[in-house]
């Protein structure tokens, strides 16, 4: 299960931006933060399923484009006072390449 899949070069993802990975079951948003870390969340806001990949990334958070909830990239949960979580997946950068642990 813990297979890392290579999905892109780090520079394919804009800093403070994101790209979408389409899998058979869902879209996954892969974010790159200002400190060049990567995070992966199911591309669905816990509020009303807005596409988080289209939001504005700041710190380790993304602001949903639909109604401005702030979602923590580390655990996929809305930051207070909003409540709710979306799935998050392990992601890492090694030698400038981005890897994800995709759900089976």
């Amino acid at each position: 299960m813990s297979n890392w899949t290579k999905i892109a070069q780090l520079e394919d993802i804009p800093r403070l931006g994101s790209r979408v990975v389409k899998t058979d079951t869902m879209d996954i948003a892969v974010f790159r933060t200002g400190d060049d870390r990567v995070f992966a969340l199911k591309d669905e806001c816990p509020h009303k399923k807005g596409p988080l990949s289209q939001g504005i990334v700041h710190g380790h958070k993304v602001t949903c484009p639909m109604h401005n909830w702030n979602i923590d990239l580390e655990d996929g949960c809305a930051t207070g006072p909003d409540e709710g979580c979306t799935n998050h997946f392990p992601a890492k950068v090694e030698n400038g390449e981005v890897f994800l642990q995709l759900p089976l």
Partner: peptide
């Protein structure tokens, strides 16, 4: 800086409720 723009301006279209 495109990453500092709201998605509508970054994608040059209005995002709809279904994405």
């Amino acid at each position: 800086d495109p990453q500092s723009r709201f998605i509508n301006e970054r994608a040059h279209g209005n995002i709809q409720k279904d994405g």
